[in-house]
Design a protein around this nucleic acid. Structure first.
Lengths: 128, 128
DNA sequence: ATACCCTGCGTACCACGGTACGGAGTCAAG
DNA sequence: CTTGACTCCGTACCGTGGTACGCAGGGTAT
């Protein structure tokens, strides 16, 4: 396990040095035991953890949920993992529905505004 | 134009008193001219403005953008309103695509996890 | 050895949309 | 006249995901 410095770990994870430290503060990455010298070492385990965080983040989990997922990863609690996935999917569906609705109404307003040239602007009138 | 107190205005707009004051600070609602007494009065114009904010917010605009929309409402600048609507639709499309992608991958993982009962949990393994 | 970079650490700050609190003034009812 | 509800105003704080900065020490190249 070759020793990495924080900047190398950050680079391998595609994040900044400050972000690694931020994750450490949030308990997502765990502070490595203090080495005798000021500089601490990170290994492939830390790189895996960091990539796990980025992957889970891409799936829409927030950092506090990712902390729980990391814990499940230790205990291999599949039922809980499925439950969290279901919850997250439900939230994603709700978010998508909300945005789609906003998009549809806004799209219609923009269309009306472009076609009709009389009266007040439909976009502004819709909110008024 | 019957005079309203801040709590009545807030109630008509479906927000809290603190939120009205927050919008005033953000320039979305404009402080009414100081009355002689400490208590200030609000009218139907303020109610319209507050409702405009909530409507525009539902369409996915952020407060800073709504401030601009309110300004367009004064000047009736339709081209700019259409431009903002287009920009907002583009952003909504990007957001919807991102969430849909997250939903699809997570949905597949949950399915795999429910069907296959051997090996490590696919949900957790996907991030690992 | 001296300059320069990187390290850990703590703290403050950013956007975003609010929420909460404390002090002082005002107003109407009892 | 006192009580209680309401108002104004400023300021600080919440969660979310970071970013930035300054300090003191250690590592490395010239």
């Amino acid at each position: 396990m070759k020793a990495l410095r924080i900047s190398e770990l950050a680079q391998k994870g595609g994040v900044g040095v400050e972000t690694v430290r931020f994750y450490q503060r949030k308990g997502l990455l765990g502070h490595p035991g203090s080495a005798v010298s000021g500089t601490r070492h990170y290994g492939s385990e830390d790189v895996r953890r960091l990539r796990f965080v980025k992957q889970a983040q891409a799936a829409g989990f927030k950092l506090s949920e990712i902390a729980e997922l990391l814990d499940l990863n230790r205990t291999d609690d599949r039922p809980r993992a499925r439950e969290m996935a279901r919850e997250r999917i439900g939230q994603l569906d709700a978010d998508i529905a909300r945005l789609s609705s906003a998009r549809a109404s806004l799209s219609k307003l923009a269309e009306d505004c472009a076609s009709g040239c009389d009266g007040p602007c439909p976009i502004l009138a819709a909110f008024d």
